[in-house]
Every structure is written in C-alpha cells, then in structure tokens.
C-alpha cells in the first residue's frame, strides 16, 4: 500500500470516528440538505450507541454464520460427508436467490419485533457466502499436496488443520468479508422492525423527509463497510503471502 493511500485511510478513519463521537461539529456540512429549519444532525439518540449496537448485531450474527458454515463446509468435504456435497452446492445456489429482506420479514411474525428477527436474518444470509467459499477453498487444495501430506504420515485431522485449512484460509476470509459487508447493509433494514442500529437514523430521515439524516446514516454504514472490506483485504493478502512463503520454504 502506498504512503498516500495509507494516509488517506487514516484521515478517513479519523473523520469517521470524529463524526460518530461529535456529529454536531459537522452541522454546517449537512445544513444545505435540510429545509424549514429541520435539525441537520440526528438528534434522537447517540450515534456512538447506535453504531456500537449495529456493529454488535452484525458481529454476533456473522460469528454464528462462520462457526456453522465452516463446520458444514468441512463436513461435506470429508469422505464421510462427500455424499452431501453436490446437494449442498445446490442449496447454496438456491439460498442466495432469497432476498435478505424476505428472510427478515418472515422472521418477524415468528419471533416478534426487535433484535431477534434481524439476528436470524443476518445469521442465515451470512451462512451462504462463507459456506460457498469454504467449499471452494477446501476443494481446490491440490490432491498432490494432500498425497504428499499423507506420505509424510499426517493423519486426516492434521492434514485438515495443518494443510487444508491454512491453504483455504484466504478464500474463506473472502467469504466472511462478503457476508460482513452484506450484513452491515442489511442490518440497516433491521431498523424497520425495531432493531437498534444505524438504520434508525436513515428511517428517521425518510419519515421526516430530512435528507441530512438519510445521508448521515448511509455514509456511516458505507464507511464502516469500506473499512471492514479494506481490513479484510489486507488480512487476506497476508494470509496469501504466508502461504506462498510456506510453499517456497
């Protein structure tokens, strides 16, 4: 990463943190987006609290997706689970045609308003990209490598932990990144069913016809997504580099 882009990222991050901590400072920037003397900065709650609960919801849901999706991915690529592999691929393909909004809305009548339907929807929707990438990552490990590991006397468990998972790691991480970014965005829709999060800011803006709120909420979520995306790309590259270093050693 060049010095310039690193500086740009640090500056953006500082801007984001300042905005969340002290949004009033930016009132003049958002003033032109309001009309009839409406407030320029969201005033119905603390942005810090909303950001934290937004991130917490996404984090908990995605953590659940990671545990379940990676375990399932490992299971269907073992000899004992191979029979389930073709069908799992089909399920992933079909599952991804489900719009996240639909999953969210179906959960509401079943579990009521609040955090629960959002968590369920994010968890379910997050499963698919992680599962798909775990499958891709684990099935693309070359049979030659596995043979060599077997030849070195590694048992199935050590082959999985020391060879297959590390080799699949960058692809799995890419799946987690995709889930996180989608979930950050979907979690805003959770606010329509009374989950606490940055969606509240956007919806308050839509209800009071105040574009300043909509832009604020949207920008904070977009910047959070941007930084998470960026951080993961960095980790994925590290993981990839570690791999090639291992391969050449």
């Amino acid at each position: 990463m060049s010095v310039f882009s690193a500086l740009l990222r640090i500056a953006l991050l500082a801007l984001l943190v300042t905005f969340i901590a002290a949004p009033q400072v930016f009132a003049p920037v958002f003033e032109p987006l309001t009309s009839h003397g409406a407030p320029a900065i969201y005033n119905q709650g603390s942005l810090v609290a909303l950001t934290l609960s937004h991130l917490w919801t996404v984090f908990v849901a995605t953590l659940g997706s990671i545990v379940v999706a990676v375990s399932l991915g490992i299971f269907v690529t073992r000899p004992s689970g191979l029979e389930f592999l073709p069908l799992s691929r089909t399920i992933v393909n079909v599952g991804q045609t489900f719009p996240p909004v639909a999953v969210l809305a179906i959960a509401v009548p079943l579990v009521g308003f609040g955090e629960a339907p959002t968590l369920i929807a994010l968890f379910l929707y997050g499963l698919l990209p992680i599962f798909e990438n775990t499958l891709t990552g684990l099935t693309q490990v070359s049979p030659l490598t596995l043979d060599a590991a077997r030849g070195m006397g590694m048992n199935a468990r050590r082959r999985l932990v020391e060879i297959e998972l590390p080799l699949a790691l960058p692809v799995i991480l890419a799946g987690i990144r995709l889930s996180l970014v989608i979930n950050l965005s979907t979690a805003t829709i959770g606010s329509t069913v009374a989950a606490k999060g940055l969606g509240e800011v956007i919806i308050a803006g839509l209800q009071s016809n105040n574009t300043a709120f909509v832009v604020q909420g949207g920008l904070v979520v977009a910047m959070l997504a941007f930084f998470i995306h960026d951080a993961f790309r960095l980790i994925e590259r590290r993981a990839g580099r570690y791999q090639s270093a291992q391969a050449s050693a």
Binding site: I189, G205, L206, V214, V215, G218, V221, F226, H229
Partner: peptide
C-alpha cells in the same frame, strides 16, 4: 462502483430522493 455497492440500499434510495 465498489464503494457504491457498500452503501446500504435504503440509504442510497433515500439519498437519491433529494
């Protein structure tokens, strides 16, 4: 285009209203 994709849908819809 990548950055646009990260903007949550309701926010982008809302922002374009103005």
């Amino acid at each position: 285009l990548n950055v646009i994709q990260t903007i949550p849908s309701i926010a982008l819809f809302g922002m374009l209203m103005a």
